[in-house]
Write a protein that binds this DNA or RNA. Structure first.
Lengths: 218, 218
DNA sequence: GTTTAATTCAAACGTTTGTTTAATTTTGTG
DNA sequence: CACAAAATTAAACAAACGTTTGAATTAAAC
């Protein structure tokens, strides 16, 4: 990928994340990237194709990390859960802006192609986490849980604190204009500690006091 | 509130929820509501003011329910948690479209007034849930947890399954064009069962195996 | 050095946007 | 009925939008 193309993608990501897809004009992107307006069409074809390129670009970016984590035989299922939480919190907080676009896919994105790409990424993540949890269950460490819902709890909790800066800054007791770096440094350990506590209690087979998870019929 | 004004709000909510705020034109709203284009400005002043009216309208809609739940002395903290989960799952699933707008506030909404209103609603909810949890802690039923993060887990999990219809329909093993009624009927019990399981394990003082929640410094 | 292709640019394109205007119709009141 | 206020309408408004054009410039190839 050419430097200029990549540069446009990065700048577009910033703006999309801050103002949303519709809230960002191609003129904004061109100006922020320091290129001529027509270059967006020239490089990407259209504004929507630019977003699609961004999704592909970011999806490839973290490719394989989860796969490696899964293959690592030296780690216990509990270790893997901890690493998983660290990975996702770091990854989402380091790609705050992009994640907001991805997450708001349902209403923010009108293109069917992009929706399909985002869907594929989500399913791939679900597959990897499913492997970790079923492994823990086979080793009699984890109890029976609703795995897709558990993934939703993991991702949803993180997302809840990336969607509204006003709210999360208030919870964190920091100024709303705090820079991204400090914001992450405050939010990250707290999110990780909470999620690890939740997942430990939720997955631990010793906490199975007779409740059974939801069993889909048919 | 006049019938026509309310009717416009309901139709606008549908469209905002389906296509997003920016994806919906005032012409769309006028057409769907069966009123003249100029009536939106006439009744609400502007498109943004219309959204603000919608937020106020929906916030009032469920006013007091959480307060009542809290005051009910006949319910144990565990009962209250169950009712809380039922309440939020039902409420969000029954106002899917509106909730998506509220939730995407950070990027979807540009108006500072609306952001403040949404923030106020979130803080009010947090206050009520905090009361329930601290009550359970004082009664030695709940352990020490990060309460705002716990609220994030509750709301975030639900939201994760309301943001992307493609994904959640796939998880639920139902057709994507399933009507809202059937969609809710499938998703609701599963979400409730999962969240109750998570919250039981997370809050139960007997599951406190030495882990301490995050303690903010200063 | 010449030629060909790729890149960059200012300008303009046709739409769509939210909003306003000014005339008209409906409604409520005495 | 008469009159004033409220409600409704079609039409027009200026601004912003994504995209395209065609000429100008730069880079690459031989």
């Amino acid at each position: 990928m050419s430097d200029k193309r990549e540069h446009i993608l990065i700048e577009a990501e910033k703006l999309f994340g801050e103002r949303g897809f519709d809230g960002t004009s191609v003129r904004d992107i061109a100006q922020n990237a320091g290129v001529n307006l027509a270059m967006i069409s020239y490089y990407f074809g259209s504004k929507e194709k630019l977003l699609e390129s961004l999704v592909v670009y970011r999806a490839e970016y973290a490719y394989g990390i989860l796969e490696e984590l899964n293959k690592d035989q030296s780690l216990s299922p509990w270790d893997k859960i901890d690493r998983l939480i660290d990975f996702y919190v770091d990854r989402i907080l380091n790609n705050l802006r992009f994640h907001n676009i991805m997450y708001q896919e349902s209403t923010a994105v009108r293109s069917e192609e992009i929706k399909q790409r985002i869907f594929a990424i989500k399913m791939r993540n679900l597959d990897q986490i499913t492997k970790i949890i079923t492994d823990g269950q086979q080793k009699r460490l984890f109890r029976q849980v609703d795995i897709p819902m558990t993934v939703g709890t993991l991702m949803g909790t993180i997302s809840y604190y990336t969607q509204s800066r006003t709210y999360s800054c208030n919870i964190l007791a920091i100024r709303e204009d705090t820079d991204d770096e400090s914001y992450r440094a405050t939010l990250s350990p707290r999110l990780k500690a909470h999620l690890k506590q939740v997942m430990r209690a939720h997955l631990d087979i010793r906490n199975d006091s007779g409740q059974q998870p939801y069993q889909p019929q048919g």
